[in-house]
């Protein structure tokens, strides 16, 4: 998509204990990252249902970012085991129906990884910018 005016809308589900704190660290460290991301704080990335992710795409998100604790660091011990199962499955299913699996990204970002959070958001925003608007949104507009 060569549309240079395209401003992606990215929804981020961040876990309260690691990635949200990591985002906080990025903030207090005054690290710059693109403002296209809207954050929803969840108590655990394992509480994010694939339904929520699909709902985000339905409602016009161009990308969805899920941030959780590293495996083994989950505040609830094994919540993120479920996150990775669900999201890996959803990515593959999205690929099957042609919804571009790259629009869904899962990353483990700890509370100490402020720079990693900023970098992940920068990379993901750049990627979505390059991919263009979500095909679901284009389909809805055409209908």
């Amino acid at each position: 998509m060569a549309d240079s005016n395209f401003e992606p809308r990215i929804l981020a589900f961040l876990c309260n204990w690691c990635t949200y704190a990591g985002a906080d660290l990025a903030g207090v460290s005054r690290l710059q990252y693109p403002p296209h991301i809207r954050v929803i704080r969840v108590m655990c990335s394992g509480s994010v249902s694939p339904h929520h992710v699909l709902r985000a795409f339905q409602k016009g998100a161009d990308g969805v970012l899920i941030g959780g604790c590293h495996i083994g660091d989950c505040h609830y011990l094994k919540g993120n085991y479920m996150t990775i199962k669900r999201m890996r499955f959803l990515q593959d299913l999205m690929k099957f129906v042609g919804m571009e699996e790259g629009r869904l990204h899962l990353d483990w970002i700890s509370a100490a990884e402020g720079p990693k959070f900023a970098q992940t958001v920068r990379d993901f925003t750049a990627k979505i910018q390059k991919m263009g608007p979500s095909p679901l949104k284009q389909a809805a507009r055409a209908a």
Binding site: K85, L106, D107, W108
Partner: peptide, 11 residues
């Protein structure tokens, strides 16, 4: 599970 062997997909 006792351990998780799945890896996140690279961006």
């Amino acid at each position: 599970g006792e351990e998780s062997t799945l890896q996140t997909k690279p961006m």
